[in-house]
Amino acid sequence: MNTLDHEAEPGTDTAAILRQAATWHADGRRVALATVLGTWGSAPRRPGSHMAICDTGDFAGSVSGGCVEGAVIEASRGVLEEGEARELEFGVSDDDAWAVGLACGGTVRIRLEPLS
C-alpha cells in the first residue's frame, strides 16, 4: 500500500473546541463547558453544540448564532465560582431572552458545567 500522507490535523470544529478546553485547563485556568441540550423552533445550532469558556473570558465554539453567547459567558463566572453545573434556557417568551435577543425565534436549553 502506497500512501503519501501529508495530511494536516484532521480536526473538526468540535475537536478543536474540546482541545482548546483541555489546553486552558492544562495551563491552570478554570474552564466551563456549555452544551446545547435541546432546541425548539428555529435555532441556529444543533443539540450537542459546544462552547468552552476560560476564566479569562476567552471562549471557543458557539451555542447559538451569536445571540446568547454573551449571557452564557456571563453565567460561566458563577459556575466557575461555585463549581456547580447549571442549566440555562433562552427563548422568545421569557424576559431574559428579550434582554439578550434571541432573534431567531427559537428556544435553546443549555447545560453549563465546570471542567473538573
Binding site: 484532521p10 480536526g11 473538526t12 468540535t14 475537536a15 474540546l18 482541545r19 478546553a21 483541555a22 485547563h25 463547558l33 441540550l37 453545573a85 442549566e87 447545560r111 458545567e113 471542567l115 473538573s116
Partner: peptide
C-alpha cells in the same frame, strides 16, 4: 465534565473513533 473524560473524548476524536458522551444532568454522572 471530568478532565479525564474530556481527554478520552478528544483522543477518540483524533483517532477517528465514534463515541458518545452520556450524562445525567440531575446527578452529574
Amino acid at each position: 465534565m471530568q478532565r479525564a473524560l474530556l481527554d478520552e473524548l478528544t483522543a477518540a476524536l483524533e483517532a477517528g473513533r465514534p463515541v458518545v458522551w452520556a450524562s445525567r444532568p440531575s446527578t452529574g454522572e
